[in-house]
Design a binder for these strands. Structure first.
Length: 458
RNA sequence: CGGGGCGUGGCGCAGCCUGGUAGCGCAUCUGCUUUGGGAGCAGAGGGUCGUGUGUUCGAAUCACACCGCCCCGACCA
C-alpha cells in the first residue's frame, strides 16, 4: 500500500504507510520520571524519540519527520543565501586537528577513538579543520570567492551533563556552514548573508528568534551573534530591547547579492546581549525602561566571524588580484537542528500536548475515524485520505479501533495542525468536523468543503 | 567535575527500615458488551528485583564494589 502520488516540492518526506494501524507511533500515557522540562516530556510521550543512553536518542518515525522538515527549511534558506551543500564524515583524523592546534586544546568534550591500526580518530564536534582542508586542496584564486560550504551532520560532544532531552544531547544534528572570503569586507558580507538567512529560517519554523551579541567561545574570532528563542526553560539569561521581538523578517525575494547591511544595522543598533557579554550599565543607558526585556532563551544558532584563525595555521591561502597569496577570511555558522525540535515544542504547546507550527508538523492533517469498521465511515475516510493526499497534504489516518476519547487525546498530544473527525453521527447529516489544534476551534462542514479548506492552505 | 537522588513486568509505583522466595495501577493478549473527549465485566500472559561479591539456613530487603540514569551547580550548538 505504498502510494505513489504527485508531491508538491518536498521529496525528502516520502508518502507511504500513514495509516496508524500500520504505523509506528508509541505514545506514552504517563510521563517518564526522568523528563523534567516540557519539551522532553512531550517528545517522549508523543513517541518522537527514545533515549538510548545519556544524551543519545533514537528518532522514531514522528520525530524523524519533524527533524527532516526542519532540516529542509534550513537547507532551502542556506541555498537561497548562496551556500553550497556538501556532506563531511562524522569521524575525523586527529592529525587534522593537530594542524590547527585544537586537538590538545579541545579537552574531554571531544570523543577520541582509535581504529584497529591504532590510528587516532575523533568523532567530530565541529568541522572547521576538515572544511578548511577541503577548501585549501582545491581553491587557489580569489576569483572563486566568495564561497560558502555547509553540511548537516551528526556531531558528538561528550558533555559532562547532558540534559533537557534533545536540547542538550551529546549526539546532535547540526547544520554548520563555513564561509571563505578574500578580505574582511567580503567576509562581513558573507556574515550578513548568513545573519539574514537565519532570520528567515527560524521565522519559517514559527519561531521568534532574536540575534544577540555573544561570546565567541572555543571557535574563536571577534564577531558573533547567537540566535535566541525566548523560553522560560532556556539555558541562557538574555537582555534586549523589546522592539527586536517584532521586527519584520526579510522576504523570500531578498537579494542576497545586495548590500544587506541596513537589515543587520536595524537590529544591531538595538541592545541585545546574552548574560555572558551583558553590560547592565549600557543596557540601562541605551534602552528606555519600558522597552527593557530580561528573560531566558534557547540558543538555536550562532554565527561567527573568525578571520584567519584556521586558514593561517592550516595554510588555506588564495592568490589575490595582485598575485600575492593571502590566508582566506573565514566565518562559521551553526544551527542546532535536533535542538530546534525541542525548542519549537518549548515555544508551542499546551496542556494537551504539542502544537506544531504548520511548516514543521510531522503531518499536516490527522484524519480520525471515529468508528473503524463501519462501512460508511470507512468509505468516507478512505475518500478523504485519498483526496487530501492527492492534493499534497501529509495525512496521518487514525484507522484504529480505539475509542473516540482516546483518539482525540492522542491527536491533541501529537499536535498535528488540523484534525479531520469523521463519524457515523455526522455523516448521517453529510457532515464531518474540522478542528484547528492551535485555536481549538471546531467546525462542521461537508467533505468537499473540508477538502477545499485544507488544501487551499497549501 | 563537586553535591544530591534513583535503579523492582512495557510505563508509573509499593514492598526494603524490622531478611522467609514479589504486589498494585495503567498498558498488552482473549472473549463478551460498549463506542462523539483516555469504557465495563470476565479471564490470561509477562519480572535474572541494575551487576558482582560477601553475610546468612535463607537476600528485592543487610554490607562492600561496580555499572546505568536523573536532578542542582560549574561548562557547552
Amino acid at each position: 500500500m505504498c502510494l505513489s502520488l504527485p508531491r508538491k516540492g518536498r521529496n525528502l518526506v516520502s508518502v507511504s504507510f500513514m495509516r496508524l494501524s500500520r504505523y509506528f507511533l508509541p505514545l506514552l500515557r504517563e510521563t517518564p520520571t526522568e523528563a523534567q522540562i516540557v519539551s522532553h516530556r512531550l517528545m517522549l510521550r508523543a513517541g518522537l524519540v527514545r533515549q538510548e543512553a545519556a544524551g543519545i536518542y533514537a528518532w522514531l518515525p514522528l520525530g524523524f519527520r519533524v527533524l527532516q522538515k526542519i532540516e529542509q527549511i534550513v537547507r532551502e534558506e542556506m541555498n537561497r543565501a548562496g551556500a553550497v551543500e556538501i556532506l563531511m564524515p562524522t569521524l575525523q583524523s586527529a592529525d587534522l586537528w593537530r594542524e590547527s592546534g585544537r586537538y590538545d586544546a579541545y579537552g574531554k568534550e571531544m570523543l577520541r577513538i582509535k581504529d584497529r591500526h591504532e590510528r587516532e580518530l575523533l568523532y567530530g564536534p565541529t568541522n572547521e579543520e576538515m572544511v578548511t582542508e577541503i577548501f585549501r586542496s582545491y581553491v587557489r584564486s580569489y576569483k572563486q570567492l566568495p564561497m560558502n560550504l555547509y553540511h548537516t551532520q551528526w556531531k558528538f560532544r561528550d558533555e559532562v551533563r547532558p540534559r533537557f532531552g534533545v536540547m542538550r544531547g551529546r549526539e546532535f544534528l547540526m547544520k554548520d556552514a563555513y564561509s571563505f572570503d578574500i578580505d574582511q569586507a567580503a567576509a562581513r558580507r558573507s556574515y550578513n548573508r548568513m545573519y539574514v538567512a537565519y532570520l528567515r529560517m527560524f521565522a519559517r519554523m514559527g519561531l521568534k528568534s532574536i540575534p544577540m551579541r555573544a561570546e565567541t567561545g572555543p571557535i574563536g574570532g571577534d564577531l558573533s551573534h547567537e540566535f535566541i528563542v525566548l523560553a522560560e526553560t532556556g539555558e541562557s539569561g538574555v537582555f534586549c530591547h523589546k522592539d527586536l521581538l517584532d521586527m519584520p523578517i526579510p522576504g523570500e525575494d531578498t537579494d542576497f547579492d545586495s548590500d544587506l547591511e541596513p537589515i543587520i544595522k536595524g537590529r544591531t543598533d538595538l541592545y541585545a546581549a546574552t548574560e555572558d557579554v551583558h553590560d547592565q550599565a549600557r543596557f540601562e543607558a541605551e534602552v528606555p525602561e519600558d522597552k527593557r526585556l530580561s528573560a531566558r532563551g534557547i540558543e538555536v544558532g550562532q554565527v561567527f566571524y573568525f578571520g584567519t584563525k584556521y586558514s593561517a595555521p592550516m595554510k588555506a591561502v588564495v592568490a589575490g588580484p595582485d598575485g600575492k597569496e593571502v590566508p582566506v577570511e573565514m566565518g562559521s555558522y551553526g544551527v542546532g537542528v535536533s535542538r530546534l525540535v525541542g525548542a519549537i515544542i518549548e515555544a508551542s504547546h499546551d496542556d494537551a500536548g504539542i502544537v506544531w507550527p504548520e511548516p514543521v508538523a510531522p503531518f499536516g492533517v490527522g484524519l480520525v475515524n471515529l468508528k473503524a469498521g463501519d462501512a460508511k465511515t470507512d468509505a468516507a475516510c478512505d475518500d478523504l485520505y485519498a483526496r487530501l493526499t492527492a492534493a499534497g497534504k501529509d495525512v496521518l489516518y487514525d484507522d484504529t479501533a480505539e475509542r473516540p476519547g482516546a483518539k482525540f487525546a492522542s491527536m491533541d498530544l501529537i499536535g498535528l495542525p488540523w484534525q479531520v473527525v469523521v463519524g457515523p453521527r455526522g455523516l448521517e447529516k453529510g457532515l464531518i468536523e474540522i478542528k484547528n489544534r492551535k485555536t481549538g476551534a471546531k467546525e462542521e462542514m461537508s467533505v468537499d468543503a473540508a477538502v477545499n479548506k485544507l488544501t487551499l492552505r497549501g
